[in-house]
Design a binder for these strands. Structure first.
Lengths: 260, 260
DNA sequence: TGAATAGTGTCTATAAGACAATATCCC
DNA sequence: GGGATATTGTCTTATAGACACTATTCA
């Protein structure tokens, strides 16, 4: 049962607090979550966007998002948006950054806690197909900066046309890319973007798509194999026009933080 | 002039939006900022805490914080809290994480955008002395986990007594420490914690206090000097009972993100 | 002179980059 | 067999850790 701010359960001597923060005197911002759902498909980084059907920013493309309920944890709100708007559950979701510029939404003050989610392209395509929505686009992300410089990015549809982004969502997407790049080197985050079984080459292509530049193949193989995060399945690719690569699985490590 | 949610400037055809989010039907969470103000003094990591004088959690110790104004950017609210409650301006402040558990404040739903700030111990001591508040403590932080595992931490006052922390502030402090540790290796963040001129040894002690373990002296010197982030001043320590170390200055690098 | 820390030089271990050689699939 | 990519091995280079040695200040 939601507890309203106008009828809080008060221990006595709370008057001073409420005097300093009277809800009627100080209107509250709205709080939302926005979701940057990323995948890597065909060696390009892609994000799920929804076409806005209403003003403001009608016909522009926006991240899936929604209001945070009064009694709803923020991470639960993000999972709810992912489930209700995209049809996905149980994938990697992490809080990204909170965007709170008063002018970011022209209607009213909206503070948005952005999250980013990672999923394999197969799983995401299945969810998009199931939703049968024609206002969904899995747009390619073009990043006009290098490293973790951060900044707005561009969204390109499958025809190569740029999709205009709504609100400050170009900045939110950029922040997600910067975070992803930063975490790639010391976190097993890339495994979230491939299926259960994958080749080292496909994992390398995921890294390259995220970083935006080629990585050394030999060093990459050595590093991944030495990390102990993979185990060979003994199975191999089939129907490829070259020597088939071995398939590996991700092995989640026990959290033994080492301090060298 | 603040624009109230009850009287927004509406382009027409916004009815659908407002119907889906009627402020009277869906009470809004309050939004606050909390500030983790960290420094390193005498080889220990310390944070500024304020004793709570009111319920709830009266007599427990809390981070400086405050409500975000309806028309106030979140980062501006953090800077305002820093100025009004601590008396500091112009220091390093960065958004940390948003804490939104519905039960984190027993009075009402409060979503807090936590920030962390870094300052040299000299500057912070001067601010504390100027404020003449006896409800301020620069507490030593004890971290019961290693690496970036994250989790609640303990606050210890100058007598070695543990200070009980208010709300979820032990978790917020822990998140700040984890973030600081993570950024230490690839960001010139440690320079924020020393004065204008510093010895390499003192910078090393800052690193050690943050990481919670000793670092190799030789490699540390080489790495810092090779980074190009320091310039020697030609000046030396005085009144020390050993060979005086040279004083260095921080040289901010131009943002040339390299992609190796 | 001795205690204490600053600073330099060298050797070793580890990880990355470069590149060659061999392996295995489909056509 | 030829084309293509996988996989292995070796050499080189860059960086970190270990450790010895010299330098400089004050008591």
């Amino acid at each position: 049962m939601p507890r309203r701010p106008s009828e809080p359960i008060l221990p006595h001597s709370e008057q001073a607090f409420l005097a300093a923060y009277d809800a009627s005197k100080f209107p509250r911002p709205s709080v939302t979550v926005d979701l940057v759902l990323l995948t890597v498909e065909n060696e390009s980084l892609r994000a799920l966007l929804l076409k806005r059907l209403e003003h403001p920013d009608r016909d522009r493309w926006a991240l899936p998002g929604g209001f945070v309920g009064y009694d709803e944890p923020v991470d639960v709100a993000a999972a709810r948006v992912l489930r209700d708007k995209v049809g996905l559950e149980g994938i990697f979701v992490e809080q990204l950054f909170t965007f709170g510029d008063p002018a970011r939404d022209p209607r009213m003050r909206v503070i948005s806690v952005a999250h980013f989610a990672l999923v394999s392209p197969m799983t995401l395509r299945r969810a998009i197909d199931t939703s049968r929505s024609n206002t969904m686009s899995l747009a390619t992300i073009r990043i006009p900066w290098i490293g973790e410089a951060d900044g707005p990015v561009h969204a390109i549809d499958s025809n190569g046309t740029e999709l205009p982004l709504a609100f400050d969502h170009a900045h939110i997407l950029g922040k997600a890319v910067a975070r992803l790049r930063g975490r790639l080197n010391y976190s097993p985050i890339a495994f979230e973007l491939v299926g259960e079984e994958f080749t080292l080459r496909s994992l390398q292509q995921v890294h390259e798509a995220i970083l935006g530049h080629p990585v050394n193949k030999d060093a990459f193989r050595r590093r991944i194999l030495a990390s102990g995060q993979t185990s060979p399945t003994g199975k191999y690719q089939s129907s490829v026009q070259h020597r088939p690569a071995e398939l590996y699985r991700f092995v989640r490590q026990s959290h033994t933080s080492d301090h060298t």
